[in-house]
Design a protein around this nucleic acid. Structure first.
Lengths: 335, 335
DNA sequence: ACGGGCTGATTGACCGGTAAATCAAGTAGC
DNA sequence: GCTACTTGATTTACCGGTCAATCAGCCCGT
């Protein structure tokens, strides 16, 4: 490993001068600078980032926690975060918590010790219990894609999930649906609340019996829940799934139950994952600006890093948008 | 930030003694050890990993390059790698190259400077031109999921893709298919070669005209290629797609062309991605042991790190397995 | 009473950079 | 011709740990 000292000796200057040349700081005469650069080239010197980090206290690395990386939602977030980091010359330290609180805690401990400049926590579930550990972190922390109530100690960039549910509900209302079913994951209460609000606006109620919890956030889980729901209330004309993968399963369930979509049953999904764009019929879904969200969050963090102050403790909500495709139609379209 | 020196002073010992206690090395009397530990607890001391890295030359961080993280194949690899790293107390530095050679190169430069202990490169495409940069890397490097000819400077853990193609072909042969079509991505030559070998074993030839390149590795790309292929040779009785997403598109294309699967057309995919398990009919596919592959590769690297010698420059091939589902059947089953 | 082998702790150097203060010339002002 | 200011480079200290060598007691044998 060739060091700065090696370069300095070969170029007949001091370590410090080499440092100045490399970082373009301080006053160095053009002649010396050229000579140093030549030696750098000749020896193939690259600065040791670990040493630099120790001296400066900055690692140019940002930590990202996500529940998983399977599934396009978090995959998009990871990629977007990485794009922004790359634009700014930062590296990405990734930890997928995978429903494993212990692992999350272990990683937290590791990162706390100065090895990241900032930390973004996307998604909830596994980490919420350990957040207090970060209260005294020496680097900025932000949350994103948070749906459940978050500890208000950290700035947050997330989606207006309540509005997402509302958009789904309003769409179905505009199509005239009155008797509807909801397929929800346990963590999606805000979406359900928003959905209900859309109906409440017209004086309609979505009863608790119409809300079915999916056993798992998978197509199979959606299939099971939808099958049960359709059996429980055959008169339902529309279905809102709080997760696209559930909607996929619901499409299958509708087919299995002999109901044509959208003629006999309208289905609205949530997230607008690209993989469901290929479903037949194409799924109407509430699109959430995940990439924008990730970008906003990470830029917020980087701003906090460079300005070296704690970020404003705020909540930024991004607005979802409804994407209408072929899985929804007016109620009673069959006739 | 509380340092080791702070702990030492408070406990009335030296920095070095604290270090010994923390790492359980050297000879420390139980009494002193207890006292030091108490102070550590009291002050909430955590060792500075950057400083430790500088002193020891090990960062306990491993770099992983993948082309993308969207799509379950690489997502699985990332998660498996992370699992193994976590088991061994390592962190993961992720870089998705995203068809961007420049980005890959930038990251390579960053990692080269002592900031990772090892590097795993999964998948090819973007990085192959820059591999020589790693020739003089001071840490072990390994490749995995490599299909095209790789530079034989690094150890490699990958899949026997030729055999994967062979399994697909043999399956179709056993079902009696003679006139077949292949949908391939440009990089999948070995799979196609293996597929051909299965037919050659029975004295049959798969002509070049039967091999269609997909415009993009997406369902839409598969749809387009399959539609063209079926139009070009309506007499084909089976189709092998070198990528599951292509097979998904092919299923659609078959449906659009009014051909029932598997009665009029058998379809075999490749990768056995979980998301296609939900397709109708369920897709027969060649399953590749991606998690095992990732695990083998990263364990190979970690062994090289601890034994601190260059890893054996070998190629390890994992065997794929055919998973038969509902999209394939005997030729002429309609009758 | 004295040298030799343990144990437990200390000392000083070092990892490879950066930051701030200092120093040696060369130029400018008067 | 003397001080005062620039410019370009050096010196010294420091970031927070680890490593190797050293040292102070203590127990032991003779």
């Amino acid at each position: 490993m060739v060091t700065m000292q090696d370069v300095a000796e070969r170029a007949g200057v001091t370590k410090q001068t080499v440092s100045n040349v490399i970082r373009g700081r301080g006053a160095v005469s053009p002649a010396t600078a050229a000579r140093v650069r030549a030696v750098v080239e000749e020896l193939g010197y690259t600065p040791n980032l670990v040493a630099r980090s120790l001296a400066t206290g900055a690692t140019r690395t940002v930590g990202l926690f996500v529940p998983t990386v399977a599934g396009s939602f978090y995959a998009s977030i990871v990629e977007e975060v990485e794009d922004v980091l790359d634009e700014n010359g930062y590296h990405l330290l990734l930890c997928t918590t995978r429903l494993d609180g212990g692992r999350a805690k272990r990683h937290l401990a590791g990162l706390t010790s100065r090895s990241v400049d900032a930390l973004l926590i996307a998604g909830d579930r596994d980490l919420i219990d350990h957040l207090p550990l970060l209260a005294e972190a020496s680097f900025p922390v932000a949350l994103c894609a948070w749906e459940t109530d978050a500890p208000d100690r950290f700035p947050m960039v997330t989606i207006d999930y309540e509005r997402a549910g509302y958009l789904a509900g309003r769409h179905l209302r505009e199509l005239g649906h009155e008797r509807v079913t909801v397929l929800a994951s346990p963590d999606h209460a805000p979406r359900v609340a928003g959905f209900r609000r859309a109906f409440a606006a017209d004086g309609l109620t979505v009863p608790d019996t119409a809300v079915h919890l999916a056993p798992a956030p998978t197509p199979a889980g959606g299939f099971a829940a939808a099958t049960a729901a359709l059996a429980a209330d055959p008169g339902t004309t529309a279905l809102f799934a709080t997760h696209d993968v559930l909607a996929l399963g619901a499409l299958e369930a509708a087919r299995a139950a002999g109901r044509s979509v959208p003629h006999d049953l309208s289905i609205v999904g949530h997230d607008d994952n690209p993989e469901v764009g290929a479903s037949r019929p194409a799924l109407t879904s509430v699109a959430i600006p995940k990439r924008e969200m990730a970008r906003e969050a990470i830029e917020l963090l980087l701003r906090a890093v460079t300005r070296s102050g704690a970020p404003a403790n705020s909540i930024q909500l991004l607005r979802p948008e409804l994407v209408v495709r072929d899985s929804t139609g007016p109620v009673g379209a069959r006739d």
